[in-house]
C-alpha cells in the first residue's frame, strides 16, 4: 500500500525532481567555477582573507535554490490533487485520513531531504578538497538553514494548497510568508548557530498545519 502511494506521488513529481536536480547541479557547477576563477585571478590568499576576516559567504547563489525546490515539489504534488477535488479519491482509499496525510507529507520531505543531502555531499566534498575544516563547517551550517527553508517551503505550500477555501487560504499564504522569513533573517555565515535546532522544531510545527487543511477539505469546507 505504501509502495502504491509512493508510486502515485512519484508519477506526479518525477519530471520536476529531475528538473530540480539539473538546476541544483547547474547552480553548484556555476558556484564551483566562480570560486575556481577567483582562485586563479585574485589568489587563494585574497579569497581566504575575504572568507575569514570579512565573513564573506562564497556560495550566495545557493540561497534560494532549496526554497524553489520545496515550493516546486509542494505545488506539483498537491495541485493535481486539488484540481477537480481529486484529493477525494485519495481520501477514499482504504487508509485512515491522518495516516494518508502522513504518507503524503513524508513522501515530499524524504524526497527533498534526499536531494538536499546529495547536494550537501557534493558541496562538502568540494569544500573539503579546497578549504580548511572550519570554513567547510561554517559554510555547511549556513547552507543547512537554507535547506531547512526548502523543507519549510514544501510544508507551507502544501498547507496553503490543500486548504479548501480562499477565505482561509489567503491568510495562510501571508502567514506562510512570515514563517518562511525566519529562515532568511540574516546572511551572515553560520549566524543561526544553535537556533538551527529551533528551525527544525519550527518545521515539525509547520507539518502539523497540513493535517488541519486536509481535514477541512475532507469535511467539506467551501467558500
Amino acid at each position: 500500500m505504501i509502495k502504491a502511494i509512493i508510486y502515485k506521488e512519484w508519477l506526479k513529481t518525477r519530471y520536476f525532481v529531475a528538473f530540480i536536480v539539473l538546476v541544483g547541479l547547474a547552480i553548484h557547477i556555476y558556484s564551483f567555477l566562480t570560486i575556481g576563477h577567483s582562485f586563479r585571478n585574485t589568489g587563494r590568499a585574497e579569497l581566504w582573507d575575504l572568507i575569514v576576516n570579512r565573513s564573506h559567504f562564497i556560495f550566495p547563489s545557493l540561497k534560494y535554490f532549496p526554497l524553489f525546490a520545496g515550493l516546486l515539489i509542494g505545488v506539483t504534488q498537491m495541485v493535481p490533487e486539488m484540481v477537480d477535488k481529486r484529493l477525494k479519491l485519495t481520501m477514499h482509499l482504504p487508509v485512515r485520513e491522518k495516516t494518508m496525510t502522513t504518507y503524503l507529507i513524508a513522501y515530499g520531505l524524504i524526497l527533498l531531504t534526499t536531494v538536499f543531502i546529495l547536494f550537501n555531499v557534493v558541496l562538502a566534498t568540494f569544500l573539503h578538497l579546497n578549504f580548511a575544516w572550519e570554513i567547510t563547517a561554517t559554510t555547511l551550517s549556513t547552507t543547512l538553514v537554507w535547506y531547512l527553508s526548502g523543507l519549510a517551503a514544501y510544508l507551507l505550500s502544501v498547507f496553503c494548497i490543500t486548504e479548501p477555501t480562499w477565505k482561509r487560504r489567503i491568510p495562510n499564504i501571508l502567514l506562510s510568508l512570515l514563517l518562511l522569513h525566519f529562515f532568511f533573517i540574516t546572511d551572515y555565515p553560520a549566524a543561526y548557530g544553535y537556533f538551527t535546532f529551533g528551525l527544525v522544531l519550527l518545521i515539525l510545527i509547520y507539518s502539523t498545519f497540513i493535517y488541519n487543511s486536509i481535514h477541512r477539505f475532507k469535511t467539506g469546507y467551501q467558500d
Binding site: K3, A4, L11, D84
Partner: peptide, 22 residues
C-alpha cells in the same frame, strides 16, 4: 465522482497497478 474524475496524470496501466495494491 461526478465527471468520472480520476488521476489524470496516469495511464490505464499505471492506474490499474496503483489501485490494485489497496
Amino acid at each position: 465522482i461526478e465527471g468520472h474524475i480520476q488521476y489524470s496524470f496516469m495511464n490505464i496501466q499505471q492506474i490499474e497497478k496503483f489501485y490494485s495494491q489497496f
